[in-house]
Nucleic acid binder design. Structure first.
Length: 417
RNA sequence: GGAGAGGUGGCCGAGUCUGGUUGAAGGCGCUUCCCUGCUAAGGAAGUAACGGGGUAACCCUCCGUUCGAGGGUUCGAAUCCCUCCCUCUCCGCCA
């Protein structure tokens, strides 16, 4: 949720929203509604004040005066109800538009859309395609079973089998232990949340079509543990000395992938269900940009240790999604496609999500909203895709990345007979 | 799933039957001050959040809202009615 007051008073805030591609007319419409709302609010409050006074007076009145006083108070009430109805309508209208307005983009974000990113850093070589692409290799190793999955669950589902499962758990262990060393508390969060949680975390209404809904129970399957992690401090007044509070969430993630028909259909690059270790940080507003760099460094450290070639890009304003003010993507080189493909990302939401959740920090004179940030530590399924291309050997065997060896007790895996 | 109990300020806890200066007793905690060689004990005062307006601005001031959430009754609701959410106890079921 954006800050309406800032939208009214701060021109940079306004231009940050326009930077994201929102029509100026929409903003003016919001401001007009806001002005009308506040006028009505003043009117309502004045009448309520009159009513309160009149009621208190009745309490003290003698039995003889009572009836007359009640009659005059009833008149105030009738008037109040009329104005209240108008106010309610106006503020509902305002909320509906305001909630769909994205968080302003930071001025450092490049202008434009998906293709207008800025490359920040490039690490490693753009190597040649391996003998098999990840989809073929997954089949070759007996690690990915998609046919049966298609029969049982439909397209974009897969069974992960054999050593791939051990590597998955090694990745989880490796990432979680790294995160714990950096002050993150590990969490296994619920993956089903209420609608309100989706709204508060900043995913609804914008990404509604991307999530699975359990209509019967009014619950939604989360596409990332970020949603549930955000809720860990809903309504809390945090102590500044405990900040930042960092969580490392492990969970399965569910995405409908609506609108991606025909994209990335082979292998497990893009599936409806995958596991992920996610970083989440509740942060003092003064340090949130520093914390974003911290998250990015961790992501890069993991890629460096897995010895994957990648680049870091600064995502353009129009491609940020509603809640992020700034976002880095780490894109790993996918040799079979001769392209960089997104593996991890991290973003600073500033107070956008905290405002809806009312997560604040106890201060001397006021209690400012916290800032929230999140980043991918390890998207396991997709990491497997990159490992399968970068670590397959000429003889068809798989060399386990050295940082993972202690976590799975394997070094070289031969293909099945 | 069946039966019951309950959700009040940072925390504990009155008030709900019998609606009216109750934003809410009391206690704990916390802050400031006094006392004290230091600490403890003791004494005094203060101590909710959010929103809107006033003000050059505010630690200033006015108003409103909030006793799990949302509706209703009433001139007036923490108190009465309805719906929902959550917690606890007992029974049943279960990884």
């Amino acid at each position: 949720m954006i800050d309406l007051r800032k939208l009214r008073e701060d021109t940079d805030y306004r231009s940050g929203i326009i930077h994201k591609g929102v029509d100026e007319k929409t903003l003016d419409e919001v401001l007009d509604l806001d002005t009308a709302c506040r006028a009505l609010q003043a009117e309502v409050e004045q009448l309520r004040s009159d009513q309160n006074r009149a009621s208190k007076d009745i309490g003290k009145a003698s039995p003889e005066e009572r009836e007359e006083k009640i009659n005059s108070a009833a008149k105030i009430k009738a008037e109040l109800q009329k104005v209240e109805a108008k106010f309610g309508e106006a503020s509902d209208g305002l909320r509906e538009i305001a909630i769909s307005i994205p968080n302003p983009a930071d001025p450092r974000c490049p202008t434009g859309g998906e293709d207008d990113y800025e490359v920040i850093e490039v690490v490693g070589e753009q190597n040649k395609p391996p003998p098999m692409d990840h989809a073929e290799y997954g089949e070759h190793m007996g690690w990915v079973e998609k046919e049966k999955a298609a029969e049982n669950m439909g397209s974009r589902f897969a069974y992960l089998t054999g050593e791939a499962v051990l590597i998955e758990f090694a990745l989880v262990q490796y990432t979680l232990s790294k995160l714990m060393n950096h002050g993150f508390t590990p969490v296994v969060p619920p993956v089903l949340v209420r609608e309100q949680m989706m709204l508060d975390a900043g995913f609804f209404p914008t990404d509604r079509q991307q999530v699975y809904e359990l209509a019967e129970d009014d619950l939604y399957l989360t596409g990332t543990s970020e949603v549930a992690l955000a809720g860990l401090h809903r309504g809390d007044l945090l102590d500044a000395k405990n900040l930042p509070i960092r969580y490392g969430g492990f969970s399965s993630c569910f995405r409908r992938e609506a609108g991606t028909y025909g994209k990335d259909t082979s292998g497990i690059f893009r599936v409806h269900q995958f596991d992920k270790v996610e970083m989440f940080s509740f942060c003092d507003p003064l340090n949130s940009w520093e914390e974003l760099e911290n998250l990015r460094n961790l992501e890069q450290e993991i890629l460096n240790e897995l010895e994957l070639p990648y680049r870091v890009i600064l995502v353009a304003a129009g491609d940020l999604g509603a809640p992020a003010a700034m976002k880095y993507d780490c894109e790993v080189w996918l040799p079979s496609e001769q392209k960089y493909r997104e593996l991890t990302s991290c973003s600073n939401y500033l107070d956008y999500s905290a405002r809806r959740m009312m997560t604040r920090i106890r201060g001397e004179e006021s209690n400012p909203l916290a800032h929230t940030l999140n980043g991918t530590a390890c998207a396991i399924g997709r990491t497997l895709v990159f490992l399968m291309e970068h670590y397959q050997q000429d003889d068809g065997s798989f060399k386990v990345p050295s940082v993972l060896q202690p976590f799975c007790g394997l070094d070289v895996i031969a293909p099945p007979e």
